[in-house]
């Protein structure tokens, strides 16, 4: 099948406010639908993206500081790629301790779940920081070749 040399890209920029979540979700769902992804994969991607955004709003930008979050989505070689960029403080998701999923209720810690979701629901999660460009999180979902936890446990 002929593949276009320049795949279609989908982009959105919003400010770092919690009330932009509906706009972000709407963008991800519409983009994924346009790329013919099934609803389970759309849910996984949407959840991972929202968790990433919660982290950016909570950790990357100091409270009350205005900033932006840029989204770039494309489909490349059967991979759905979403790049999320912000210009806040460096925030490496790998620096967050993984939650103990086996702990009893009393011992369960509150943090770390969002990053656990991102890593479980997506097939690849990569982070980089650049002083000029800021934080960049690139997450990939493999389409049509197996897939991550989210699909295997329906």
């Amino acid at each position: 099948m002929h593949k276009p040399e320049h795949p279609e890209v989908f982009e959105l920029t919003v400010t770092n406010q919690l009330d932009n979540f509906p706009a972000i979700t709407d963008f991800i769902i519409k983009t994924a639908r346009q790329l013919n992804l099934d609803k389970n994969k759309i849910f996984d991607i949407q959840t991972a993206v929202e968790e990433a955004c919660e982290n950016i709003i909570e950790h990357a930008y100091p409270k009350d500081e205005k900033g932006t979050i840029d989204f770039h989505c494309e489909m490349k070689d059967d991979e759905f790629i979403v790049k999320i960029r912000d210009h806040g403080r460096p925030f490496n998701p790998d620096s967050v301790q993984s939650p103990d999923l086996e702990a009893a209720l009393e011992e369960r810690a509150i943090g770390g779940l969002g990053i656990h979701f991102m890593k479980s629901l997506m097939d690849e999660v990569n982070y980089s920081f650049d002083f000029e460009k800021g934080n960049e999180l690139v997450m990939k979902k493999y389409i049509g070749k197996g897939g991550s936890y989210g699909d295997a446990h329906q």
């Binding site: 849910f43 779940l113 329906q154």
Partner: peptide, 16 residues
């Protein structure tokens, strides 16, 4: 709902 349950399971919440 199924997807909400999936998130609970992923978090290990179905056990607690």
């Amino acid at each position: 709902e199924a997807n909400v349950y999936k998130v609970f399971k992923l978090a290990g919440f179905t056990a607690i």
